[in-house]
Design a protein around this nucleic acid. Structure first.
Lengths: 247, 247
DNA sequence: GAGTGGTCTAGACCACGAC
DNA sequence: TCGTGGTCTAGACCACTCT
């Protein structure tokens, strides 16, 4: 591997030094020079490598930390964020039971290789006619089904999940994605809307067909910004609640 | 008025100098020393006043800017944020028409002085039995009603709005709050949930009773953090949409 | 104690806005 | 041209973590 940028930052036009530096460091992270969870070199080292003062380097790292790319821990070091391991919970959108932080149990009810529908293909960045892995699962709290999910995964990354015992996957998918496929979900965009359950969906949730539901359509992205998962989560609309602070 | 803090920041225990400074400046802003929309003194001045280096003072101001209390404009100065004048639109939660940035027309359908229900009193911080001003209004786009709102205002601040011609208020309330009552809405917390329209509500929206609706319950706060408005906004659940980014 | 990030300082210079 | 905030530097010292 060629030595990184051992010289002065090229002073991009219209960009401050630290902003250009941050972009350069972001590129090095995305290129995999420091994998998720690993530590970056010390500030002094990075500052010397890029030929800037410590303060400028720190500004750049603060930017990346604000953007969620890295995490700085006093006394330990600067680390590439490992991704949303448990942070992406859909429970943020629903109020079931007593609202404890309990992780809902997961049961895979279907796993198929299918041609991705147009909308899914668009979201995943697949070509028309490409196949993808579709999972359907029910999530339950205290034995009560509360969410029904349809999950689409590109085969190029998740072929590993097409086989083997899905019952052994556990209740959380994102840690599984990391362990089995090396995929780190780094950011997700959730679109909320309301609709009605089909008969099939309702059955899984022990509700009646046509019952109102909240639908969360999630696009999940990796470090490089590629969409790695499309997920449709449905739950009883009456259990939906979400809080937003406007400033 | 006593001279502010002309001496060194007292180095609060467990707080960095700039954090303590930010707290001190925040207190001065909330006390009204610099009203919303007005400019703070220059960095050099403030740094001298508080006996810190420029860099430290800047750190404090950056904190307050991140928190949305002040706004820094290169070449012009540092200003106390004037509040959400148009930024608080409920249209962020709905998809009506072609999704233009159009401001919905407002029609006040009722204005009454009523004893605040328990929940409203709690949210507004009123005593049991206190009266409040209740507005009901319909908001329309291209003549089509799309949102129905019930708005509760504490009389102590909004007595001015209990009289006069409400038809002359215009389509936005927050600018009216500033002009007529000197109340700046600085922050709002919106809780989203789902329900069904009562017959009365449905009538205003040209829908049928029991139609599914999205309900946005807003608490609006002023600079000092006091709740100055409670608002219940209802709209057709099928028009609801909202996007959240998770990191 | 060695190594990490966090704070604070002092000063130079640049970029922007208003007059 | 002047006053404002924004950038960059260089260095000292503090606070936290690990061993």
């Amino acid at each position: 591997m060629a030595s990184p940028s051992l010289t002065v930052v090229p002073a991009e036009p219209g960009l401050s030094r630290y902003a250009a530096l941050a972009a350069a460091l972001r590129a090095r992270v995305i290129a995999g020079e420091w994998p998720p969870g690993s530590a970056l070199p010390a500030e002094q080292t990075l500052a010397a490598e890029h030929g800037v003062a410590l303060g400028t380097l720190r500004r750049a790292l603060e930017l990346l930390a604000d953007q969620g790319l890295i995490e700085r821990i006093h006394g330990r070091g600067t680390f590439v964020r490992a991704g949303m391991t448990t942070g992406g919970t859909m429970m943020r959108f629903f109020r079931f039971g007593e609202g404890t932080g309990e992780v809902p149990a997961s049961r895979i009810v279907s796993r198929q290789l299918l041609v991705a529908p147009a909308e899914v293909a668009r979201r995943l960045g697949l070509a028309r006619g490409d196949t993808a892995l579709r999972l359907q699962r029910v999530r339950s709290l205290s034995g009560q089904p509360c969410m029904y999910e349809e999950i689409w995964l590109p085969l190029a990354l998740f072929a590993e999940l097409a086989e083997g015992d899905a019952d052994a996957w556990g209740d959380l998918l994102y840690p599984l994605f990391v362990e089995r496929c090396g995929v780190h979900v780094h950011r997700a965009v959730d679109e909320i809307s309301f609709g009605a359950l089909t008969a099939a969906q309702a059955k899984h949730l022990a509700l009646s067909a046509g019952h109102p539901c909240a639908l969360v359509t999630r696009n999940a992205y990796d470090l490089a910004g590629h969409c790695v998962e499309v997920r449709y989560t449905r739950g009883d609309a009456h259990a939906f609640h979400y809080t937003v602070t406007i400033t």
